[in-house]
Amino acid sequence: MDRQKQRELLRLLEQDSRLTPEQIASLLAEPVETVRETIARLEADKVIVKYPALINWELVEDHPYVTAMIDVKVTPKRDVGFDEVAERICRFPEVKAVYLMSGASYDLSVVLEGKTMREVAAFVSQKLATLDSVVSTATHFILKRYKHDGIQFEDRDEDHRMVVTP
């Protein structure tokens, strides 16, 4: 499969990971076996990492977690830069994502889930801030999700108010 068709296949799976190889083959005008082989190769090469469902947890009763985004200022180490401290942060089970950032006043952005704000605060003060290379942190709690991974969570009804002009 050529690179352009492969990118189309990846976009299709990104939009709906439940598509079958038969459906993808039909959409791409490719043989089903070619699609199966391409998907298997992309999975083996870790281009396709996982097929997640996107859940709107705000609609799930008694969802016990809060999500925080933590800005982390780090002193990079010689020969390994930010990678070593990022890998250490990734090992914590509470950590959902770690990103190296550019153009910001911090170096790493850490997404964390905890049962309470107090639990997140304890993680930051007892585990994250105590790492050798960490210079400072700033914690931001997510209060509401409007859009995630290109999906808007709330479909707003059209505005039916009457337009008033002077």
Rank of each mutant, 00 (worst) to 15 (best):
L27C: 04
P31K: 15
P31H: 13
E33C: 00
T34C: 03
V35R: 02
V35Q: 05
R36S: 04
E37C: 03
T38E: 11
I39T: 04
L42E: 00
E43H: 01
E43A: 06
A44H: 12
K46W: 08
V47K: 06
V47F: 02
V47A: 01
I48N: 02
P52I: 09
L54F: 02
L54C: 04
I55Y: 14
I55Q: 05
W57Y: 07
E58F: 03
E58L: 05
L59K: 13
L59C: 07
P64C: 02
P64H: 03
P64T: 01
P64Q: 03
V66M: 05
T67F: 10
A68R: 03
M69C: 10
M69R: 11
I70N: 03
V74G: 08
D79K: 14
F82W: 07
F82D: 03
E84I: 03
E84V: 03
V85F: 13
V85C: 12
A86F: 10
E87I: 11
I89E: 11
C90H: 13
F92Y: 15
P93Y: 08
P93I: 04
E94N: 09
V95E: 07
K96C: 01
K96L: 12
A97W: 11
A97H: 14
V98C: 02
Y99S: 07
Y99P: 02
M101D: 07
G103M: 13
